[in-house]
């Protein structure tokens, strides 16, 4: 019998689910306090610490690494659920559906990883 690839994807799904459950709620809540930066001004931690924190999250080497892990965990978890959820919407899934879902998760993770690498080594 051909070995199933399900355990690998399920473990990523599990890790991503834990990340979405524990880390994403506070991130979304904090993002609500992001304020607009007026024209011509720079990101200033004294004026808005939340803006500065989100800038750190995407811009700094360490921050962008956590950001990459967050994005990758979210999309692998989400697209695994979408793939299995298609059955619930009476779509008979086949290999093409799997390829699209996991392929999309892979591409998004790769873009985030490249962006993270640029921030870490520049």
């Amino acid at each position: 019998m051909k070995r199933s690839n399900e355990p690998i994807f399920w473990s990523i799904f599990g890790a991503g689910g834990m990340l979405v459950a524990i880390f994403v709620p506070v991130l979304i809540a904090l993002s609500f306090f992001i304020t607009k930066i007026p024209e011509g001004e720079q990101i200033n931690a004294a004026k808005s610490s939340i803006d500065a924190a989100f800038a750190w999250f995407t811009y700094s080497g360490f921050g962008s690494f956590i950001c990459f892990l967050t994005i990758s965990g979210c999309v692998w978890h989400a697209l695994h659920r979408v793939y299995h959820g298609m059955h619930d919407l009476t779509i008979h899934v086949n290999f093409a559906h799997q390829l699209i879902c996991y392929g999309l998760a892979f591409i998004i993770s790769l873009i985030a990883l490249v962006a993270c690498a640029i921030r870490m080594f520049s």
Partner: peptide, 22 residues
Amino acid sequence: ESSVLFAMLFALELLAGMICAA
């Protein structure tokens, strides 16, 4: 099951920020 779509949407927002930062 559909709640993950919002998590994914937020991940895409973060991705936009990462691309901007890069």
